[in-house]
Amino acid sequence: MGFTGQCRCGNVSLSLQAETLPPLYACHCLNCQRWSGSAFGLHLLCGAQGVQTAGALREYQYKHEGVTSTHYACDVCLTRLFNETTAAPDMRVVRASVLDGAAQWTPRAHIWTKRRQPWVVLPEDVAQWPESPTPQAFAQAMYP
């Protein structure tokens, strides 16, 4: 099964090959708020080989607390499409909102909720952590 999307200007297209849509999660950290210009970022943790792009990309890399994060955006409109992090080798964190049909998906988890905007109300039955969960706890919530 495949999922497709694009940047705001259409210069870069993205395709995601997966049997089912990877679970969606929301990150409320300050970096995601600033990167998105919104209250949180919506992400899909995907196998790197399943994420393909066509079109010119721009890379931005930064290091924080021993972790390197490389972000990929359209070279024209600067829409962020995905990132790779040394914290999750062989994975790509796709920005869910660039995919067609994103409005129909609901997050299975919320991370960094201690930074959430006070007006954001989270469902009580959805996994949530004040900061980043352990990989084991995150996997249990995302793949029950």
Rank of each mutant, 00 (worst) to 15 (best):
T106Y: 00
A137S: 10
A127G: 09
E59V: 03
R92C: 05
N83Y: 15
A48G: 02
R115E: 13
T85Y: 02
Q61L: 06
A87R: 10
F40Y: 15
Y72Q: 12
W129L: 01
Q17V: 05
P144S: 06
G5E: 01
V93M: 13
Q49F: 02
L16S: 03
A26D: 01
P133M: 03
H71Y: 14
G10H: 02
I111T: 07
C29Q: 11
P135C: 00
T20S: 10
R115Y: 02
D75W: 06
M142S: 00
E124R: 10
P118D: 14
P89S: 09
H28F: 08
G37H: 00
T70V: 10
H28P: 00
T79G: 08
L45M: 15
V120T: 08
W112E: 12
D75P: 02
E84N: 03
T79W: 07
C46N: 05
M91S: 14
K63Y: 02
R108L: 07
V76P: 02
Y143A: 07
D90N: 15
Y25E: 06
V121S: 06
W35D: 10
R58M: 13
L24H: 08
A103K: 04
C27M: 08
P89A: 15
V120Y: 09
A87K: 06
A26V: 01
Q6V: 00
Y72E: 07
V67A: 12
A141C: 13
Q61H: 02
E84P: 01
A109V: 03
H110R: 06
L44S: 03
F82Y: 15
T70N: 03
C32R: 04
S132N: 04
V94N: 08
A141G: 07
Q136I: 11
P135D: 09
A26N: 12
L81V: 13
H71L: 11
P123N: 02
V94G: 05
G5H: 09
H43P: 10
Q33Y: 05
C74R: 05
L122R: 13
G47Y: 01
H71R: 14
G41C: 15
A88I: 04
D75T: 01
G10L: 07
A73K: 11
A48E: 04
T86E: 04
A109S: 07
Q49S: 15
G10P: 04
T86S: 08
L44F: 00
A127V: 06
D90V: 04
W105C: 10
A103E: 11
H28I: 01
V98F: 03
L81T: 02
W112H: 15
A39C: 12
P118C: 06
S13Q: 04
Q17K: 11
G41R: 12
A102P: 09
A127P: 09
S97D: 15
R8T: 14
P135A: 10
D125A: 13
E65R: 10
C9G: 14
P123G: 11
Y72C: 08
L81S: 05
W112T: 14
Q17C: 00
A39G: 10
R92P: 09
E65S: 11
Y72H: 10
T68H: 12
A56V: 11
D75C: 05
C29K: 02
L16I: 00
M142H: 04
Q117S: 12
